[in-house]
Design a binder for these strands. Structure first.
Lengths: 344, 344
DNA sequence: CTCCGGAATGTTTGCGCTAACAATTCTCCA
DNA sequence: TGGAGAATTGTTAGCGCAAACATTCCGGAG
């Protein structure tokens, strides 16, 4: 029998010896088994405290086959949306006693996505949440062996994946309708990157609204990458065109760039041009002028994704077939000063 | 001997049987041991591919006592700074073959910090990076048992912790000097939350610069929490005071709120008031007007923190005493339009 | 008292892997 | 051709834990 030599971390047997019981009784106490006499339980707990004992997660995993770990794959955790979702996911995971391991994507090709999945599976995560709503990512995920539960955030209804998404089309429609209702003849659109599903869906929602209302459908401004920088660059074109009175931007950061470009060109917002964004980042309220925008509850999105994933995991454990969960969240329009009636 | 029954995941012994070798040889191939004949190695690799074998991380951990996992504790991963650092950390961790588990702090009290540390230690992380540069957090960390390597990001030189930090005082000095050099009589300061070390240090740097240059030291504006909202609220006070011609804000988001408040009050930037921020978030360039600010390289900060942590871990493994690593990174001033000479 | 049945506790086994040691096969030079 | 020594492979023994089974303990019915 191994003698305890001060240095090594205590193990269950050490606790057992101190408490005068078998290691199995210690295990029972730790796992809340019913048939342990209160007095014994107290002795064990005292011994645990005395030694500063901490169960060995690897040993437990080896025998239970559970790691209590989930993986999150994200393209760019620096963006406000992904960062907020990650936060929501982690908060919720904590409550469900799961750990969260992150895997940032180096690039957006199929390969990177699959590599990230492999990495997480090597670590034996019990499930994966993917925050990478790009067509390539979704395509790559279709090839993932289905032995690990997987939920995609914001991957629309296009794929066969379980998913949690905001109703992008609905949000775009709300923004576009609002501008038309204000009296604008039509609404221009500064689109997000074409490879992102969110960008595609927002554009679709915008286009459909114009068509159904009989408004002309101008060419959308493409080439944006969600950043204020590209919003600024595309904004120059808008600023030059006096015909344009209303712009729906695919996100708030690009809207910020647009506001800047308009200001630089001497065009007033909202008097000359109305602008609406998408996301409602915390700063949007303090743009010049405050930005009317479509609000996404990223936190909630993260929580819902986690809940869906846990449902999948539990179904797997119970041997039940997985239902293809698909949750959609409704975004609302937040009205501020950046959109108004057009000048007569 | 267990018979393989289709359903269960293949284990090393299964690979060994297919390849016609012992499981130990499979282990040697997986761990790149030198003395394996190429032909044997190929047979083993073929068997691994055929079965889709994936080593069991828990079993390996149990015997090697290494989890290849690091923990990151962060207060609010939604803020640009922490989010970027997390990103940098993950990228670097990947290269060093480590996994990254995140633990978001529910609140900022001692208890939450210690809970997060406990959670990560339960998962047997090999080291922890803390992104929570608040006095309470640092205080709590001092109590953490030292058997797990720990690096704090942005916790200044105040504690005994290993740390990686930006030179906040230096950055504040640079901003303040710049404004004084432009000809402003003095510089006001919109401070960050007093509980944050970064905020404290920036205020110190600002104050010291004024003192050493013989400029009057006005009362700093307190009560900010880094958000644009509080920047806006505090900004109203500044806007009312025509004496104020230059403001150094503790971060860019508060500067945004200030810009908005000044604009609302009809005061022009930089003609009437010069504003400088801190961080250089990607949007700062597109504020109205573009913001002069002190640049922090968060990505680099994250990478450096990770490198320091790995040094600590390796030192521990080698049985060498830990040197109290302390890295400081120099921030630079990014000059844009929001600061200019005062009106005569 | 005795004996029964459930509550409480102990013993054994194996999860899948790597380290340590043992055994076998090659090399190459005397 | 015969080893010595290296290269290669196999065997055994845990790592720390929880499940399965075995044993002991206890209170109450007969």
């Amino acid at each position: 029998m191994r003698v305890i030599d001060g240095d090594r971390a205590p193990v269950m047997a050490d606790v057992a010896r101190i408490a005068g019981v078998s290691h199995q009784t210690v295990s029972r106490v730790l796992n809340d088994h019913p048939n342990v006499r209160p007095a014994t339980r107290d002795r064990v707990l005292a011994a645990i405290r005395e030694l500063g004992y901490r169960p060995n997660a690897a040993a437990r995993t080896l025998v239970t086959r559970r790691t209590n770990t989930l993986g999150v794959i994200s393209f760019n955790t620096t963006l406000y949306g992904p960062a907020s979702m990650l936060y929501g996911i982690e908060q919720a995971a904590k409550q469900h006693d799961y750990f969260v391991t992150v895997a940032a994507l180096a690039a957006l090709d199929r390969r990177s996505v699959l590599d990230a999945v492999e990495r997480l599976r090597d670590q034996a995560v019990e499930g994966i949440i993917v925050i990478a709503p790009q067509t390539t990512a979704v395509g790559a995920l279709a090839n993932v062996p289905s032995d690990v539960p997987l939920v995609a955030v914001g991957c629309g209804t296009h794929s066969s994946l379980a998913s949690v998404a905001v109703d992008n089309e609905g949000g775009a429609e709300r923004a576009t309708s609002y501008l038309l209702d204000l009296g604008h003849r039509t609404v221009h659109h500064m689109a997000g990157p074409a490879s992102w599903l969110d960008a595609q869906e927002r554009e679709i929602g915008w286009r459909r609204t114009l068509e159904s209302r009989g408004a002309p459908v101008p060419e959308p401004l493409t080439g944006g990458d969600w950043s204020a920088r590209t919003g600024f660059e595309l904004g120059h074109r808008i600023a030059r065109d006096p015909q344009i009175t209303a712009v729906f931007c695919a996100n708030d950061h690009m809207a910020l760039g647009l506001l800047r470009a308009l200001q630089q060109a001497g065009r007033r917002v909202p008097e000359d041009v109305s602008v609406i964004g998408f996301d409602d980042i915390p700063e949007a309220e303090y743009f010049g002028p405050p930005l009317t925008t479509v609000r996404q509850d990223f936190d909630e999105l993260g929580r819902r994704a986690l809940r869906s994933l846990i449902q999948l995991i539990d179904a797997d454990l119970a041997g039940v077939g997985r239902a293809a969960v698909r949750v959609s969240i409704d975004p609302g329009l937040v009205v501020r000063a950046s959109a108004a009636r057009p000048a007569l």
